[in-house]
Simulated scan of single mutants.
Amino acid sequence: MRNPLAFIAERWTPTQRTVQQAALISLVMTCVIVVTGGAVRLTGSGLGCPTWPKCTDESLTATSEMGFHGVIEFGNRMLTYVLCAAVGWAIITMRSQKPWRRSLTRYGWAQFWLVMGNAVLGGIVVLVGLNPYTVAAHFLLSTALIAVATATWQRTREGDDKPRPLVGKAVAQLVWALTGVTVLLIAVGTVVTGAGPHAGDSSDVPRMNVGAVGLDWEGVTKLHAVLAWIVVTLTFALWFVLKAVDAPRGPLNRTRDLFLILLAQGLIGYVQYFSDLPEVLVGAHMLGSCLVWIGVVRVLLSLRERPHATVDVPRPVSSDQLTSA
């Protein structure tokens, strides 16, 4: 039996723009499903469909008796299929591109398997009654998916030559430190969520605790804020260093974009904290978390360039050369 992707690739060649758009769509859909997943939790619809993979023991879909919460939860589940379609379309375009870039296709398949793994983990979240640790793992796996989707989008806009660094080793180390602190910031953010008041369901869902003692939500929130300020400081320091060493526009622009996103995210974070966590602002903060992570990954990827491979084309033979021969 022939590989369906190879069959399509023989008969269709997408434009470079089509491949880039497909990668961008999969990235956008990844962020959409993260935000809608947050909406499920913030509306108390986390157990709107009380089982998995079916919505109830008797029905695959939400029923009218389940009301608003069933619609929200089942709708989020359906968006997983939309995300799969977006990733599938990206894989098809990458496989059909001429010449075929195997490394790029592998990025697409990495997204697919992360989506499948997160779908299974999402089912486990429901089956264990929204245990906050599984909810945190669900979000962190989505964060990994966003990183791969961002890298895929970047790879569609560059070649396959060996990467060439655009900055020195010291600058690269600063960016890796920024990336590491951002990962820690996001991880602590899941603890803030897991110990906070938005349990995800109308019933009493246990919150994160240490042994029999609940976590100090105020203390964890302050730690989250401290880490956020460290990320902001590192980003500003990076921008200053890049200006001092006269770095190319790519890293400078990506660092500037990240700094602006961080300022907006920080403003939302403080407003939601001092206004008793209104659901709309918490949802906006989740979107901001996605954008911050995308911004950091783009800064990291901007430190090198991958030119398109050059192909040596034989020079045409002139008529004089033919005559002399």
Score class of each variant (00 low, 15 high):
residue 142 S to V: 04
residue 47 L to M: 13
residue 299 V to G: 06
residue 274 F to N: 12
residue 73 E to C: 01
residue 263 L to Q: 06
residue 277 L to Q: 12
residue 89 W to E: 03
residue 205 V to R: 01
residue 312 D to V: 12
residue 219 G to K: 11
residue 194 G to Q: 07
residue 106 R to F: 04
residue 15 T to P: 08
residue 128 V to R: 10
residue 93 T to Q: 10
residue 150 T to D: 11
residue 204 D to M: 07
residue 5 L to A: 09
residue 14 P to M: 09
residue 166 L to R: 14
residue 273 Y to L: 13
residue 28 V to K: 03
residue 159 G to T: 10
residue 71 V to E: 01
residue 141 L to T: 15
residue 267 L to I: 15
residue 81 Y to Q: 06
residue 62 A to S: 15
residue 114 L to D: 08
residue 36 T to R: 03
residue 267 L to H: 03
residue 2 R to K: 12
residue 204 D to G: 02
residue 32 V to C: 06
residue 190 T to G: 10
residue 186 I to S: 00
residue 257 D to N: 14
residue 145 L to D: 01
residue 103 S to K: 13
residue 303 L to Y: 08
residue 103 S to R: 15
residue 226 V to A: 13
residue 157 R to F: 00
residue 88 G to I: 05
residue 115 V to N: 05
residue 78 M to P: 02
residue 291 L to D: 03
residue 169 K to W: 05
residue 274 F to H: 13
residue 163 P to H: 05
residue 319 S to M: 12
residue 121 L to M: 12
residue 67 G to T: 04
residue 141 L to M: 15
residue 314 P to L: 12
residue 144 A to T: 10
residue 91 I to S: 04
residue 315 R to Y: 04
residue 220 V to G: 07
residue 285 H to Q: 06
residue 66 M to W: 01
residue 82 V to E: 05
residue 80 T to H: 12
residue 263 L to P: 01
residue 161 D to H: 02
residue 32 V to N: 04
residue 203 S to P: 02
residue 234 L to T: 02
residue 224 H to N: 11
residue 200 G to N: 03
residue 284 A to R: 03
residue 129 G to L: 06
residue 181 V to E: 05
residue 16 Q to R: 15
residue 200 G to P: 04
residue 183 V to Y: 11
residue 294 I to H: 00
residue 251 P to R: 08
residue 7 F to S: 14
residue 79 L to G: 10
residue 134 T to V: 13
residue 324 S to D: 09
residue 154 Q to T: 03
residue 227 L to R: 09
residue 29 M to N: 00
residue 255 T to I: 05
residue 215 L to D: 03
residue 15 T to A: 14
residue 265 Q to A: 13
residue 213 V to K: 13
residue 29 M to H: 00
residue 195 A to W: 06
residue 319 S to V: 14
residue 164 R to T: 15
residue 132 P to T: 07
residue 312 D to I: 07
residue 292 V to Y: 02
residue 151 A to R: 13
residue 303 L to T: 15
residue 53 P to A: 06
residue 238 L to H: 01
residue 78 M to V: 14
residue 5 L to P: 08
residue 257 D to I: 09
residue 264 A to N: 04
residue 219 G to Q: 11
residue 241 V to L: 10
residue 260 L to E: 07
residue 285 H to M: 02
residue 226 V to H: 05
residue 295 G to K: 02
residue 273 Y to G: 05
residue 144 A to L: 14
residue 7 F to D: 13
residue 318 S to Y: 09
residue 281 L to V: 08
residue 193 T to P: 00
residue 168 G to K: 11
residue 173 Q to T: 09
residue 98 K to F: 00
residue 178 L to I: 07
residue 287 L to Y: 01
residue 317 V to N: 11
residue 82 V to C: 08
residue 161 D to L: 10
residue 51 T to E: 10
residue 256 R to N: 10
residue 241 V to D: 08
residue 63 T to Q: 14
residue 315 R to P: 02
residue 197 P to N: 12
residue 132 P to G: 07
residue 322 L to M: 14
residue 140 L to W: 07
residue 60 L to K: 05
residue 137 A to F: 14
residue 285 H to K: 06
residue 117 G to W: 12
residue 259 F to Y: 08
residue 283 G to W: 01
residue 163 P to F: 09
residue 325 A to R: 12
residue 186 I to Q: 00
residue 106 R to K: 13
residue 63 T to I: 12
residue 11 R to C: 05
residue 215 L to G: 03
residue 275 S to Y: 10
residue 118 N to Y: 10
residue 71 V to P: 00
residue 233 T to Y: 08
residue 266 G to L: 08
residue 195 A to L: 03
residue 62 A to V: 13
residue 61 T to A: 09
